[in-house]
Simulated assay, not measured.
Amino acid sequence: MCEITAHSGCDGTPDNSMEFVRYALASEGNCLEADIRRNRDGELILSHDETAEEAVRLGQVFELLKEKPEKRINCDLKTPGLEIPVYQLAKEYGVEGQLIYSGTVSSFFMKARPEKYPEVRVYWNIENLIPEPDLGRNICMKQMEQVFRTAVRYSAQCINMEYRLFTDRVMELLKTMGLGGSAWTVNDPEIIRSLMEKGIANITTRSLKTAVAVRKEMEG
């Protein structure tokens, strides 16, 4: 059955806050998403944009995460070069096996991952594989197939895309190639249901309670 990731700020909690983290970890979701970058002092923090304000340290989140070994954290990397520092910090807390990466995940990390960082799952953003200008146009199935083949070659678990890109043909191609689909950001219950019926691997949502309720109803 589809996994559910709590988008930062889900169900009215403040984005990238400890309130959100605690809420997501106590929920029936499988994973929580956090935006990761460095602050001016080089510390790994939860923040979508550059900020001088006080921010939650990633280490604080890992401290809570280690008490929930059944949960995962999707670290949405906002700047290049964070893959290894995040992994090293996670290892200090013993939660490296609970990591998922999305965002700016480089092909260099993907090459090294199977041998050096095998615990890390990657939901590889399509923006890393198709030039940004092309994403504003209709992407043909040939492009999709090329993207998916690259993801398979680098052993990614999922392709991470905006939910409207997951057409029936795209879902069929993913299944054929042994890849999962991770859809963001899905808040409408009917769209959540439709994607679950199609066999989507992960849904990232701000409507966490709604998504959990839909999944329960479908599991029946």
Rank of each mutant, 00 (worst) to 15 (best):
L165H: 12
C2P: 11
R40A: 11
V21A: 13
V170D: 03
N160C: 12
N39F: 00
V122E: 09
P133D: 14
D15C: 01
S8F: 00
K116P: 02
M161D: 15
F20Y: 09
A52S: 08
N138F: 05
N160D: 15
M161P: 06
E53Y: 07
N160M: 09
M161C: 13
L46T: 03
L32T: 05
W124I: 15
R169S: 14
N138E: 13
I45L: 02
G59Y: 02
G103F: 00
I191K: 11
N128E: 15
R38A: 00
A26E: 12
E190W: 06
N74R: 14
R38I: 00
K111D: 07
E28P: 01
W184M: 03
G59R: 10
M196N: 11
E197V: 14
R137G: 09
V105R: 10
F108L: 09
A183G: 04
L173S: 05
A183V: 07
P131L: 04
A24V: 01
V21F: 00
R38W: 00
E132C: 04
E19A: 03
L195A: 05
R215C: 10
E53S: 10
K116W: 04
P85E: 08
N74G: 12
L77A: 09
C158I: 05
N30T: 04
K91V: 05
F109C: 11
G136K: 09
M1G: 10
A34H: 00
S107E: 14
T185F: 02
Y117N: 13
E92C: 04
Q60T: 10
R149H: 11
Y117L: 09
G12P: 06
E67C: 09
M177H: 08
S107K: 12
T104A: 11
I100F: 14
E92N: 09
D35T: 01
D168M: 03
L208E: 05
K91Q: 13
E67M: 08
A201H: 12
I4H: 04
R164G: 08
K209H: 13
K198G: 06
I191D: 12
G178A: 03
V212L: 02
N202R: 12
N187V: 03
T13E: 05
E96W: 02
L77G: 10
I4L: 07
G181R: 05
L58Q: 10
I159V: 15
D11E: 01
G81C: 04
I200Q: 06
G9C: 01
C158W: 03
L65M: 11
D134Y: 09
N74H: 11
A90E: 07
A26N: 10
M218F: 04
D49L: 01
A26D: 10
A151R: 08
V170P: 02
Q60H: 05
S194Y: 08
Y163K: 12
K111L: 12
V56H: 06
Y123W: 15
M177N: 07
G181W: 01
W184G: 03
D76P: 07
R164T: 15
S107L: 14
I191W: 06
R72Q: 15
T204H: 01
R149I: 08
G181H: 03
A34S: 13
L58N: 10
M141E: 15
E96S: 06
Y101Q: 13
Q146M: 10
E162Q: 13
F166K: 08
F20L: 00
K66Q: 15
P189T: 12
Y101V: 13
F108D: 14
